[in-house]
Amino acid sequence: MMSALFLPILVAVLFIASPLELIELLTFGELQELVRLPLVRLALFGFVFLSFFHWAHRFRYTIYDTLQVSHLGRPIALLTYGIATTMTLLGAWVLWGIG
């Protein structure tokens, strides 16, 4: 749900409109100040945690349903949730080091 509400506009503004100079983002100093705020980093951590586990859960059941491999349930669950856990921890480590 969080990704549905926030991601389209974030991608449109940060990764499409701003590089194409269709809009003017905050100045670099303001942007740096923003990403270094502990509350913003905490919010991003929560967001990436939800996003990675959202992917893991959806992808796990899509593999089961499309490839008909429910007998491989345990290894697929270990792989998907394992990747999500690793990425979340990596995200936490990255965000902890900012500022």
Partner: peptide, 23 residues
């Protein structure tokens, strides 16, 4: 719709990368 969750994970990685490069 279920497969677009891959795009959600990619976008999350990109946001982390953006934070790192800005820092």
């Amino acid at each position: 719709r279920e497969l677009t969750s891959v795009l959600v994970a990619y976008s999350a990685v990109m946001l982390l990368v953006l934070f790192v490069v800005v820092d």
